[in-house]
């Protein structure tokens, strides 16, 4: 590879990272701003102004109850992003240690137990569990976080274990053992730091899946409850009006698409940045 070629490659990866970070930051920024200010009250009804197309007063138009779509999107971003983020955090904080533990030599009963437990969760239909949780604790954002978070655990455990098993074959783990370090210490000093890139990518993927899952749960009525706005609920309500006012589905759908794209660009960019040169 020539010098110019390497530079181009680095530049394009960097561009991806910058664009991804910008999109993600914009969405998170909007979610934060929505805490204190939205153009209109997202819950304020105004039947007189219902189903307006985008105009100067309502940039993204209004829905069937005359609520401002832009305000709802902004307020919804907070719920959707929050649910997805918290569920990823649950997955990382429980799944990653489990994966590291499973990969620790000598692998045996602990590994078997953790991985078969994983299979059990994987084998369980996620929507069914979400319905179960909602049936027991009632629907709501917190239960959506728990339901999505539980399904993130085995994903992170598996990715971590796979990566860790590969790293355990490296001679530097052997050298650390010769330096008297135990498997848990080696897991945190040598294995985990070298898995960060892998986990960052998986994290962004799970985050984007979380956004979609939250929308899905809200769509079937198990996530955020009215009047709490959420992208999934907006899509759900727009469904019946698709022929009449397609823009109602277009805006939350596009927001979701753009946000997920930004997250994936960010994850990909992070991965390249973290990769140590060979």
């Amino acid at each position: 590879m020539s010098v110019a070629d390497t530079r181009n490659g680095a530049a394009s990866r960097n561009a991806g990272l910058v664009i991804g970070a910008a999109i993600t930051a914009a969405f998170v920024g909007v979610a934060v701003i929505a805490q204190i200010w939205t153009p209109y009250d997202p819950a304020a009804l105004s039947i007189v102004h219902k189903l307006q197309s985008p105009n100067l007063h309502h940039w993204f138009g209004t829905d069937q109850l005359g609520r401002d779509v832009l305000s709802m999107l902004m307020a919804g971003a907070k719920n959707t992003v929050g649910v997805a983020l918290l569920s990823v955090i649950i997955g990382v904080f429980i799944g990653v240690p489990l994966g590291l533990l499973a990969a620790c030599p000598p692998r045996g009963a602990v590994d078997e137990l953790i991985m078969r437990g994983n299979d059990l969760v994987f084998g369980f239909p996620s929507l069914l569990l979400a319905i179960l949780i909602s049936a027991v604790f009632g629907p709501g954002a917190v239960n959506a976080i728990i339901a999505i978070g539980i399904f993130n655990i085995p994903v992170f455990a598996r990715v971590t274990r796979g990566g860790a098993l590969q790293l355990w074959t490296r001679d530097y783990c052997l050298a650390a053992q010769v330096a008297g370090k135990g498997p848990i210490r080696i897991s945190f000093e040598h294995i985990l730091p070298n898995l960060v890139s892998l986990l960052a990518v998986q994290g962004t993927i799970q985050f984007s899946l979380g956004v979609i899952a939250e929308a899905g749960l809200s769509y079937v009525g198990l996530g955020a409850q009215p009047p709490t706005p959420s992208w999934g609920r907006m899509l759900n309500e727009a469904q019946t009006l698709a022929a009449l006012a397609p823009s109602l589905a277009l805006f939350p759908g596009s927001a979701m698409l753009l946000f997920v794209l930004g997250l994936n660009l960010l994850g990909e960019g992070l991965r390249h940045r973290r990769e140590p040169p060979e």
Binding site: D171, Y172, K181, P193, P276
Partner: peptide
């Protein structure tokens, strides 16, 4: 001990100083 693979013997994220000092743990 010194191992075979000169490429796999070192954690790529550690500086040489930290790597050489690792056995001080003992």
């Amino acid at each position: 001990a010194v191992f075979q693979d000169p490429y796999g013997s070192f954690d790529p994220q550690w500086s040489v100083e930290r790597l050489i000092a690792e056995p001080f743990y003992l």
